[in-house]
Design a protein around this nucleic acid. Structure first.
Lengths: 136, 136
DNA sequence: TTAACCCTTATAGTTAACTCTAAGTCAAGC
DNA sequence: GCTTGACTTAGAGTTAACTATAAGGGTTAA
């Protein structure tokens, strides 16, 4: 079974070795094994775990909460309910983020139209009547 | 024309007065007028401007870049091109964020299914063969 | 065998965006 | 006229998530 060094993993996941050691220090990587002299040996499955960690991070979950999840994983079946609830919560969080981002996109699209028209006209004055704020 | 106090605006936009003064200090609110004794008087249009600022922030734009945009707005038609380009950039940024968030959502949905099945079975062992990593 | 380069640990510094405190001003109500 | 409460400023403190430094050990290539 092949293993990876910390810098190989960093490259693969677009992280730095600093970040990976930081995650380890924060208790996010208890499953990573070491050589007799202390060097971390990442397994394929550890990279998979890191992808899940990155996924949770991208939902806005702070590292301390991700650590709770890691701990639950180590505790086995007795924490299945907590983990399920956690993912339901994350799902709701992502849905909310998607909704907000879509609203944001609408405003941005309006602004793109606004500026395209203004640029064609050479002046913003053309929009005198539909200004949204002091800003455009 | 009606005006609003800093705390009214804070309430309306779900911000704190601290945050609004911080934005002002950072140069985001040069258009907000003051009473003779220095109290800020927010106009309806200033609230509109703040909504745009919040929109830009939600695209991940840092405050210093938002300030550039504010400055361009004060400079008039000569900066139309910069402002148009900025919004095109923001549009691309939001599209990228939406794409990533949708990928995230897929993984989260898989996890929800995984845990629903495991909970029904009473054990995670049921998924022995399709584990994604050290983590589940 | 020694330089290059990876790795280790512990710890300090950075950054963004707030968040709060201290000291003081000002207008309204009792 | 004095307290209450919102406002002002400058500046210090907080937080999360890195990011870097220092001091040193182990393995590989000329």
């Amino acid at each position: 079974m092949s293993t990876y060094s910390i810098s190989e993993v960093a490259k693969e996941l677009n992280l730095t070795t600093y970040t990976l050691r930081y995650y380890d220090k924060e208790g996010l990587l208890p499953f990573v094994e070491r050589t007799p002299n202390g060097t971390r040996l990442f397994k394929e499955s550890d990279i998979g775990a890191l992808r899940i960690i990155e996924c949770l991070k991208s939902t806005g979950m702070p590292i301390k909460e991700i650590k709770s999840f890691i701990d639950w994983c180590q505790d086995g079946d007795s924490t299945l309910q907590q983990r399920f609830d956690m993912f339901l919560e994350r799902k709701a969080a992502v849905e909310a983020q998607l909704a907000e981002l879509n609203k944001t996109m609408e405003i941005i699209n309006h602004k793109c139209d606004y500026y395209k028209t203004a640029l064609d006209a050479g002046t913003e004055d053309i929009h005198k009547d539909d200004k949204i704020g002091s800003l455009n």
